[in-house]
């Protein structure tokens, strides 16, 4: 009995040792980024040859952060990205889940064909449609405070609307909804619930894991947008963080400032992931979807 307890304890120690090692390996780049952001360039480059790169040693200060704020409107870029990403994620969760709901629970003619077409868009890379999308976006009408105007360039909407609905997010919801007990839906129908009531009161409350997964995947895609905003945003006031990163790649690169900027723009991603982490892991465990 005592031997068994020892074995169990040993296994536990080994398991935690391995997990700790893996965690350290994964966290090293982040630690390197943050530590480097605190060092002057000469020291930063010299430290890369040793473990000092991961330690807050030497001439430590926040100078790179102040310099980064001086070089570029960091707060504006982060705010733009949060607006674009946040609105897109929220709208995407709603529209993609309602679409998936219609595909899974409602019988209508052509349902399977339309779903197949939507899923087929998964194999079309964005780069192939970027130019046609640009040409369309540059001529679309919009009703705003100035009345009817044409052309969506230099706006939040041009960065949001084309990305609200996508095949992958609909697919995630469809797969998840298919696994929900059909008895629940049938019972609600018998009780006289409308489709929207079923969606809002029964399906959505059960969909926490897939909502978290879809939100995180969409968040990462939107937060990392580079090509599209580069094409459609010429005004600094609407630029997102990834285009802003280019402000730091001058001929003589200031590596410390780059690391400071990266540290600052990584914070929202980490916060969002940590907030949804539990549901995300539960979703992966139940659907096998990789993040």
């Amino acid at each position: 009995m005592a031997i068994s307890a020892d074995n169990h304890g040993l296994r536990l120690v080994v398991r935690y040792a391995v997990l700790t090692l893996i965690a350290i390996i994964f966290i090293f780049p982040l630690v390197f980024m943050v530590m480097s952001s605190l060092k002057p360039d000469q020291q930063l480059l010299a430290d890369t040859a040793s473990l000092r790169a991961f330690l807050p040693v030497g001439d430590i200060s926040l100078d790179n952060y102040w310099a980064a704020f001086k070089r570029a409107p960091v707060a504006l870029f982060v705010m733009n990205s949060i607006i674009v990403t946040g609105v897109t994620v929220a709208l995407s969760l709603f529209f993609c889940s309602t679409a998936a709901f219609a595909f899974v629970f409602i019988n209508w003619r052509g349902r399977d064909v339309i779903l197949s077409i939507i899923l087929a868009t998964l194999i079309v890379p964005f780069e192939t449609i970027a130019i046609p999308l640009l040409l369309i976006s540059s001529k679309l009408p919009w009703i705003g405070l100035d009345g009817v105007t044409f052309g969506w360039l230099n706006s939040y909407r041009v960065q949001i609307i084309p990305f609200i609905v996508d095949g992958l997010t609909i697919f995630l919801f469809v797969q998840f909804f298919k696994d929900l007990p059909s008895e629940l839906i049938e019972a609600a129908r018998v009780e006289g619930a409308s489709w929207f009531q079923i969606y809002r009161r029964i399906v959505m409350p059960l969909s926490g894991p897939v909502l978290a997964t879809a939100a995180i995947l969409k968040f990462l895609v939107m937060y990392n947008q580079y090509l599209w905003p580069l094409m459609v945003v010429q005004e600094e006031g609407y630029r997102p963080v990834m285009v802003g990163l280019q402000y730091f790649f001058q001929l003589n690169r200031a590596w410390g400032e780059i690391m400071a900027y990266l540290s600052m723009i990584t914070v929202p991603v980490l916060a969002f992931y940590l907030y949804l982490q539990k549901a995300f892991i539960a979703s992966i465990a139940s659907t096998g979807v990789k993040g």
């Binding site: 040409l135 540059s138 052309g151 580069l230 459609v232 010429q234 600094e236 285009v243 790649f249």
Partner: peptide, 21 residues
């Protein structure tokens, strides 16, 4: 004036030309 980061500038101009902007 509207300033662009150098690494993104040429692509922005080409996109602007395509969009008539």
């Amino acid at each position: 004036l509207q300033s662009f980061p150098q690494a993104a500038y040429n692509d922005s101009v080409v996109a602007g030309a395509l969009a008539g902007n």
